[in-house]
Amino acid sequence: MRRPGLMLYGILCYIFFNIAFLYMAGFLLGIAVPKAINDGVPSDVTASLAINALLVFLFGFFHSLMARQWFKDRWTRLVSVEAERSTFVLQAAAFLTLLMLCWKPMPSVVWSVGGVWALAAYALFLTGLVTVLLSTFLIDHWELFGLRQVWAGNNGTPNPKPVFKTPLLYRFVRHPMQLGVIMVFFATPVMTAGHLFFAVSMTVYVFIGLYFEERSLVREFGATYRDYQRRVPMLFPNPFRMLPRRAQSA
C-alpha cells in the first residue's frame, strides 16, 4: 500500500535542510540573507559567548544523539523506520536554523583581507561547498537525506543494504564531506571573533562526530573499514600518498 504522506514528509525535510544549508552560506559570508553572523547589536562578550556556545551545543548534542544506533532503535518505536533518516535531517535543519537566528554578533575583527586574498577566500569557500555536495552524490545523496528510505516505504519495497565504497574523493580522505564543511567555516575575507568562535566550535564538533561515526563504521564494515583507516587519512589529504610509488621512493 502506498504512503504518499511519508513521501511528502521526506521531501519537505529535504527541502528544509537544503534551504538551511544554503542560508548558512550567506550567513557566514554576509551575503543575500536578512541576518548574517555579524549582524545585530553587540552585547556583553561573556553573555554572547555563553549563548553562542549553548546554540552550538544544542546543534551538536541532538545531531550526535540521533545518529547513535541505540537511540535509533528506541526512536523507531515512535517514528517509522522509513522516516527515521528524514526526521534526523529535519532536526539538523531546525537546530541549524535556531543557531543562525539566535546567534549573537561578536564583531571584533581577527583578520581582514582584500584584493587577490579576498578572491582566494571566496574561491576556497566555493570549493568547500562543491566538495560537500559532490561528496554526498559520490556515496548516496538520496539515502543520506532520507529520500531513498521514504521512497521505499511509499512503494512497500525494502531498502538496499549499505555497501562500502570509496569513489573519487574518498580515495584521498575518509570524510571529504566534513573537510568541505570545515573549509566553508573558515574561508572568509573578514574573520570576526564571532565567526571564528563559530568556525572553531563547529569544527570541534565535527571531530567529535567523526569519532563516533568511525566507531559505527568499524562495527558495520569490520576489517574492511579498519584497512581503509590504515590506508587513507581521516580528514586532511596526505600529498605523499597521492604521489606515484616511484616518485615516493626516488
Rank of each mutant, 00 (worst) to 15 (best):
V190R: 14
D140Q: 04
A187S: 15
F212H: 13
M1W: 07
V33E: 03
G60Q: 08
F61L: 15
E84S: 14
L134M: 07
L243I: 09
F145K: 04
G146K: 02
L179S: 02
A120T: 15
L138V: 02
L12C: 06
F164G: 06
V200Y: 03
E214W: 00
Y9F: 15
Y205F: 15
N155H: 12
V33N: 11
P4S: 07
K35W: 06
K104V: 13
A247D: 07
M1I: 13
V33D: 07
M183L: 14
S216M: 14
K165P: 03
I19R: 00
G153V: 03
N154A: 14
K72P: 15
D140T: 06
R231N: 14
V45T: 13
P176I: 06
Q149T: 05
L169Y: 07
V232L: 06
V132F: 09
N154S: 11
M202H: 01
E82S: 03
A152M: 12
V232T: 13
L133W: 12
R3F: 12
F221N: 03
V181P: 05
L217C: 03
I19A: 08
G209M: 10
L49G: 10
M202L: 13
V132Y: 08
Y228P: 03
L6D: 11
A25I: 10
V45E: 10
N238V: 06
L96P: 00
Q229H: 04
E220H: 09
A247I: 15
S201G: 10
L124M: 14
G10Q: 07
L12R: 07
H175K: 09
L138S: 09
L235F: 03
Q69H: 14
P107N: 10
F172T: 06
E82N: 06
R3I: 09
L129V: 14
T87C: 13
L29E: 10
R148Q: 13
G114Y: 08
R3S: 10
A83D: 01
W151F: 11
V56R: 01
T166P: 10
G209C: 08
L133G: 04
R148G: 09
G5T: 07
F21Y: 13
Y23A: 04
F71M: 13
A50P: 01
V56I: 14
E220N: 09
S112L: 11
L134F: 01
F221P: 11
P176W: 06
P176M: 07
R219W: 00
A120D: 13
L55K: 04
L124I: 11
I37Y: 04
W75T: 00
F21K: 02
V89H: 03
K165N: 14
R241I: 01
R2D: 10
T224F: 02
S64G: 08
L119K: 14
A247W: 15
N238E: 13
V163Q: 13
R241Y: 02
A123L: 15
Y23S: 01
A50W: 00
V89E: 11
R171V: 04
